[in-house]
Design a protein around this nucleic acid. Structure first.
Length: 419
DNA sequence: TCTGGGGTCCTAGGACCC
DNA sequence: TCTGGGGTCCTAGGACCC
């Protein structure tokens, strides 16, 4: 059996832990740049605020209902997530961290009553961290996901549902709308609806060959999982990333090469850091940018250009240098750039890097500098030490107008208690 | 004025090899 | 007139997840 532990309205719940005045009020959390709504409290969902809705289009509805609006605070959410995963890890080491707010647990070998076990997890996470979770349990990951959906949706279940008997599973699948199934997105849901497949139960009645032909092997796996045949194993150690991307929308449209250079330098530096964190190096770097695709009156330009590195590297100095060279090749004056980014691919483990015969760079020296850089930033906070080119004016920086303090990751933001 | 930021996997089709 | 058979690798595009 697998359990899926999923935090309720995770980002909103994190905000509420440190600001209890938000409890029982409608609250939303915005995406980066205060662009879209990406988390809603139950009260906000009831008002009819949609997931992913652009903030500026929803502003009237939010105001009319006195919805509390928060900018996203990823240092806070990331840290809270880490604490939750640690707590779950104390229940079992058979743990897959599936996303910032979800984890699968393999329950093989758990001798206690599963319902009692789930209640303990729920209580412990709430006590240790203050975030409410829902727990779904089933014989496969897809069925645990299904159970979790009902655990969250139906108040009588009090956040826990175990799908352990055939009859219970069948009842759940008969009511389960096909578009809610894990792995069935908009396109497949529309396609299946056209073929009179409305529920998960309808779906598992389809012949294997038909599913395979129309939805690839991925679709067939979902079908098998829903029928109780486990095809998706627990992945305890997340595999190394095959591509790493750092990109941001700008706080306001940018036109000058100089300010975009600062942004690109900072993105390339971030990519280098992420590579070092997974002990990898990249062979290919891609710089891209685009104008505002939502504006039909503006002339559009979305260049992207790859650059093959002389040798695989994770040095910020090198990646920043080549990213800026690449940027100069694609930058054209006269456009209003809205977003830019740097991606690195063809990633290899750092201890398997092939040298380059004509390389002028002293990699040993770079490695030592990067080590020092990472140590300083770990100790004194991100961006304490950066490339000089990143500094100065930061016109491109994002909007974050309603951000809460970093209560758990920044000394000056720690809550003061007056005695 | 204002629309996020990451990722993965799969397949088809083309280029190329012998 | 008539043009094989078997592979691999790469890329773009489409689907999905949170």
């Amino acid at each position: 059996m697998f359990a899926l532990v999923d935090c309720n309205n995770f980002y909103v719940s994190c905000e509420r832990v440190f600001n209890p005045s938000l409890n029982s009020k409608p609250v939303v959390v915005l995406s980066n740049n205060d662009g879209c709504i990406i988390a809603r409290s139950n009260e906000a969902k009831q008002i009819g605020i949609k997931m992913g809705a652009p903030f500026f289009k929803t502003a009237d509805l939010l105001r009319a209902n006195q919805v509390v609006i928060c900018s996203s605070n990823y240092p806070l959410y990331g840290d809270m997530s880490g604490r939750i995963m640690n707590t779950l890890g104390q229940f079992t080491p058979q743990l897959e961290v599936y996303s910032i707010d979800e984890a699968f647990l393999d329950l093989a070998g758990i001798s206690t009553d599963l319902n009692e076990y789930a209640i303990q997890i729920h209580k412990t996470v709430l006590r240790n961290i203050g975030v409410p979770v829902s727990i779904g349990i089933g014989p496969t990951k897809a069925l645990a996901k299904t159970a979790n959906y009902y655990a969250k949706k139906i108040p009588e279940y009090k956040g826990i549902l175990i799908l352990n008997r055939q009859k219970k599973i069948e009842d759940a699948l008969r009511q389960f709308a096909i578009n809610e199934v894990w792995g069935i997105g908009r396109q497949y849901a529309d396609f299946l609806n056209k073929h009179q497949v409305k529920t998960a139960w309808d779906f598992i009645q389809l012949p294997d060959e038909w599913v395979r032909k129309n939805m690839t092997i991925t679709g067939l796996r979902i079908k098998k999982e829903l029928t109780g045949i486990s095809c998706l194993p627990l992945e305890q150690a997340p595999p190394d990333k095959k591509s790493i991307c750092t990109s941001r929308s700008f706080g306001s449209p940018q036109t000058d090469l100089e300010s975009i250079q600062k942004a690109i330098a900072s993105f390339a530096g971030q990519c280098a850091y992420k590579l070092r964190k997974q002990k990898s190096c990249a062979n290919l770097l891609i710089v891209f940018m685009h104008t505002n695709k939502f504006n039909p009156y503006e002339s559009q330009y979305s260049p992207s250009l790859p650059f093959r590195l002389p040798a695989a590297t994770n040095s910020s100095l090198e990646l920043v240098k080549y990213a800026l060279l690449t940027l100069e090749k694609i930058y054209k004056a006269g456009y209003h750039y809205q977003k830019a980014g740097v991606m690195v691919t063809e990633i290899v483990p750092q201890d398997q890097v092939q040298g380059c015969l004509f390389d002028e760079i002293d990699h040993g020296k770079h490695g030592a500098i990067m080590k020092a850089l990472d140590r300083i930033n770990a100790k004194y906070g991100p961006d304490t030490l950066t490339m000089a080119i990143q500094g100065g004016s930061t016109d491109w920086r994002q909007r974050r107008e309603r951000v809460s303090p970093s209560y758990t990751t920044c000394w000056k933001d720690i809550i003061n208690i007056q005695v």
